[in-house]
């Protein structure tokens, strides 16, 4: 399981940030060809992002590209440029129809085959930025086996809901819960939208604790300073890791002895608890400890 606690947006026409973003050690990078790039610079940004991808120095981060929307003329050229150059995932804005994901899946197959890339390598990250997109979340997530994650929109979505973003995120609470349910039902990750107030560390901390409790796997970030805060909240404490290790070890021992029930610290532990412990270890970067 690859960690996606933080995925850092980097403006696609800014060499400085594209080349240095990985140094802040997020789990993933999003090289942005959409909103961060002025319409007159789309061509130059596409070439730059392609060449930065070809260089391939990202310090182990998962590298995705936010392409332009499928309601524009630009998305095919974006895909044709960045997939052969090494992008292993595409973040697609304003998805609201499973048909678009099937179309993208098909086109990706063509591009991968022409470039000699294993078919299916490129994952799809769906940004759901309208009420319709949220409503169809499960159908979108299951429209292609390439779909790796669902991400709710922030500003666009609240505008579509005819409200605005508040400090406590009341307007997004139900949306976020729905999205986690759809993502889990489809077997994909749930990644949260950005926290726009980059100077408000406490606000970010509160929001990340809230979305983690809802079941999200991570959050998109727009400033390097947000990375350690999100990692801190998503990384299990030493005590949690130790307990998880004991639970997994006890479950392994019980399985080896042909026993069904497991006891840890004097308490019976059932399957969901073992699964949660395995998940805690994965989140701590200790997947090797997982059965």
């Amino acid at each position: 399981m690859s960690l996606r606690r933080t995925m850092l947006y980097l403006p696609g026409n800014n060499p400085n940030m594209l080349l240095r973003g990985h140094l802040f050690r997020p789990d993933g990078l999003i090289l942005d060809l959409e909103d961060a790039v002025a319409p007159s610079e789309k061509d130059a940004a596409r070439i730059l992002v392609r060449d930065v991808l070809c260089r391939g120095e990202f310090g182990g981060c998962e590298v995705t590209v936010r392409i332009n929307g499928m309601d524009t003329e630009l998305w095919r050229e974006d895909v044709a440029a960045v997939v052969p150059a090494g992008a292993t995932g595409l973040r697609v804005p304003k998805v609201e129809n499973p048909r678009d994901i099937r179309l993208l899946d098909e086109y990706l197959g063509e591009v991968e085959s022409q470039a000699g890339i294993a078919e299916g390598r490129t994952a799809i990250f769906c940004l759901l930025e309208t009420a319709l997109g949220i409503w169809r979340a499960y159908d979108i997530a299951t429209a292609s086996p390439r779909v790796a994650a669902l991400i709710p929109g922030g500003e666009d979505l609240t505008a579509d809901l005819r409200t605005n973003r508040s400090a406590d995120g009341t307007e997004l609470a139900t949306i976020r819960s729905l999205l986690v349910v759809a993502a889990r039902a489809a077997g994909v990750d749930a990644l949260d939208t950005v926290y726009p107030r980059v100077a408000d560390d406490e606000g970010l901390r509160r929001e990340v604790a809230f979305i983690k409790q809802l079941g999200f796997d991570g959050k998109s970030v727009i400033h390097p300073n947000q990375i350690p805060i999100v990692h801190d909240i998503f990384t299990p404490t030493e005590a949690e890791v130790e307990k998880a290790k004991r639970i997994v070890a006890a479950a392994r021992d019980a399985a080896a002895r042909g026993l069904g029930a497991v006891q840890v610290d004097g308490r019976m532990v059932d399957k969901p608890v073992v699964r949660r412990a395995e998940f805690t270890l994965s989140r701590a970067g200790l997947s090797g400890e997982v059965m």
Binding site: L19, S40, D43, L48, V52
Partner: peptide
């Protein structure tokens, strides 16, 4: 202070724009 890859990306973009009449 551009690295070679940036220099090359910008050169290609300028030449494409010159070729395509997309003059910025």
């Amino acid at each position: 202070g551009a690295l070679d890859l940036v220099l090359q990306a910008r050169t290609e973009a300028a030449l494409e724009r010159l070729k395509g009449g997309d003059v910025a």
